[in-house]
Amino acid sequence: YETDHQDYCEVCQQGGEIILCDTCPRAYHLVCLDPELEKAPEGKWSCPHCEKE
């Protein structure tokens, strides 16, 4: 399936195990989030940028 999400972390610009925001195209490593997450959230997730909106 096709997605318009970026394939690198918004914070460190590296690829790998990233989680995708359900609201925007941004993607993040769990450890690059502040506060960092230990595991990917279940269900819908909005990144810090979208949470501020």
Rank of each mutant, 00 (worst) to 15 (best):
P25W: 08
Q14P: 00
C50H: 14
V11R: 14
D7T: 13
H5N: 09
E53T: 02
R26Y: 07
C12H: 02
Y28H: 06
V11P: 12
P48A: 10
Y1F: 09
Y28D: 01
P35G: 14
E10H: 03
T3G: 15
L20Y: 14
T3W: 14
W45K: 09
L30Y: 14
C24K: 00
E10T: 10
P48M: 13
P41C: 03
P48D: 02
T23G: 04
D7G: 05
D22L: 09
Y8G: 12
E51T: 12
C9G: 02
L20C: 09
P25Y: 08
D4P: 09
I19K: 15
C12A: 01
A27V: 05
Y1Q: 15
E10P: 06
I18Q: 15
H29G: 01
E36V: 14
E38V: 06
E2G: 12
W45P: 08
G43C: 07
D4I: 11
E51A: 07
C50R: 01
C50T: 03
H49W: 01
K39I: 09
L20M: 15
V11M: 15
E51P: 03
E17K: 13
W45T: 03
H49A: 10
Y1G: 14
D4T: 10
D4E: 12
C47V: 01
I19G: 06
E38K: 06
K52P: 02
D34H: 11
G43R: 07
E17Y: 11
Q6R: 06
G16R: 12
Y8C: 03
H29N: 01
L33Q: 12
E38S: 05
D22G: 09
A40N: 14
Y8E: 15
H49G: 12
Q14E: 05
C21N: 00
A27K: 05
V11N: 10
C24D: 00
C47K: 02
L33N: 04
I19M: 14
G16V: 06
L33C: 04
H49K: 11
G15M: 13
E2V: 02
L30S: 09
T23S: 10
P48Y: 10
Q14R: 10
P25E: 04
L20P: 14
R26E: 09
V31A: 09
P25F: 04
P25M: 06
V31W: 02
E36T: 09
H29D: 03
Q6L: 04
K52R: 07
K52M: 12
E17D: 06
A27P: 05
Q13C: 08
